[in-house]
């Protein structure tokens, strides 16, 4: 357990079964994250859960193939921008409704009808939540893992 988490810092694990299964699983994990993200209006789920699942896919990649390879997939620079972008998208939705003449974060005015506006608003802010959560979780993992031997 710890051996593998220590090893992940620099040397790549040479476990072939893990690598192949991981490669098979990661696309489905990401797809499931997107499903949870955009189907959260109708079933259980939402931005928080989707963000965590998406970052779990990246972390899994980092655990098996090494942090440096994960950092090439999700460059820390980009991830850092995404942390702020999610919050900005959320707050920006609020400002947009403010500019359209309603209260902050009142989505009724975003669409032609109130319900349509609510749909759009919720979709946008959930996406903002998901972006920030995924980026922060990935950043935290990078910050811890990149310090390891």
């Amino acid at each position: 357990m710890t051996e593998s988490s220590v090893r992940e810092g620099g040397v790549r694990s040479s476990n072939m079964v893990l690598r192949v299964v991981c490669k098979l699983l990661i696309p489905f994990i990401m797809l499931f994250a997107l499903y949870v993200q955009f189907h959260g209006d109708y079933g259980p789920g939402g931005g928080f859960q989707a963000g965590v699942i998406f970052s779990a896919a990246i972390i899994l990649y980092g655990l098996i193939f090494g942090v440096h390879n994960a950092m090439r997939v999700a460059p820390p620079k980009v991830v850092r921008v995404l942390i702020a972008a999610g919050v900005l998208l959320y707050a920006g939705t609020g400002v947009a409704s403010l500019l359209l003449g309603a209260n902050f974060l009142d989505y009724d005015v975003l669409g032609h009808e109130a319900v349509e506006g609510q749909h759009l608003g919720i979709l946008l802010i959930e996406f903002g939540v998901g972006t920030t959560v995924a980026a922060v979780m990935t950043t935290i993992y990078f910050a811890f893992a990149s310090r390891q031997r």
């Binding site: 109708y42 939402g46 919720i122 959930e126």
Partner: peptide
């Protein structure tokens, strides 16, 4: 009728309690 979503948890989190969720983010 107000939000139009079958999942009330999402309605409350994202719309009725939008400020709180912004705070959480």
């Amino acid at each position: 009728e107000e939000i139009g979503l079958p999942n009330i948890v999402t309605s409350v989190l994202a719309s009725y309690r939008g400020y709180d969720t912004l705070g959480e983010v």
